[in-house]
Design a protein around this nucleic acid. Structure first.
Lengths: 121, 121
DNA sequence: GAAACTACTTTCCTCCAGGGAAGTGACTTT
DNA sequence: AAAGTCACTTCCCTGGAGGAAAGTAGTTTC
């Protein structure tokens, strides 16, 4: 008989694993963290603002990623009827809760660099 | 004169952004979170154990991802001189610190699902 | 001596994320 | 009427992530 997984085989683990998968799917791609991080700081930003703030992104990627985020209710899009149409993007209330993850990731990245530095001494 | 980024243009932001980039680079790919999550639970696991625990992964990916993680000092590899050679993988002390990120991500994933459920009512 | 188990590596192939560049359309300024 | 701004979309193309399968190599069991 073939051996089976033991550790990851109970309901609690499965919930956890699928929760991680879900989160990472929603935040997939090269730009989501960057966009969300920016949006978490300046609360209302227009398309062109984001294009400037998120260094390196192009229009195609930005609009696609924003659509993804909007679909998942993390970002709210508002069209203003100004002279040339402007569109405002802001983080939703629920999107705000991602702050904890992003903080944790940033914190770890900094700790990692420090740890490397100490090792190389 | 061309407009410039304002929000993300100070030293603090830049450190934060590059810290996030670093972390995500280290944890890039389809399997790293899954492998690390498993390794965080059962502290010493052999190659074949991981192959069984991490559902869906193949030998090539597993060995490549483990090499990546080892290179970044998150996982320790130990070869035992047993009958057929066995290799043990375990999370390093520093790798343990990733637990906080993984927990936060899992927590968020679960909260996200709950939020979706409430909206659809 | 054949098969099976350990831990991989290598080769080959496919798919798609993501980049560049150009186009659209509505309005404004010069 | 030409050029510019804002917010996109569309098209084309390429690199590389990742999967399947077979190969390597040492040892041990049948």
């Amino acid at each position: 008989m073939k051996k089976k997984a033991v550790l990851n085989n109970n309901a609690l683990c499965q919930t956890r694993i699928s929760a991680i998968k879900d989160t990472m799917e929603i935040l997939s791609g090269k730009w989501k963290f960057h966009i969300l991080g920016t949006l978490l700081m300046g609360d209302k930003l227009r398309f062109m603002d984001l294009l400037r703030e998120v260094e390196g992104i192009g229009t195609k990627m930005l609009s696609k990623e924003l659509q993804d985020l909007e679909m998942n209710h993390l970002v709210k899009r508002t069209v203003l009827n100004t002279k040339p149409v402007t569109v405002e993007y802001e983080i939703t209330e629920f999107g705000q809760t991602l702050g904890a993850i992003i903080d944790e990731i940033a914190k770890w990245g900094i700790a990692y660099k420090h740890a490397l530095y100490q090792k190389s001494e």
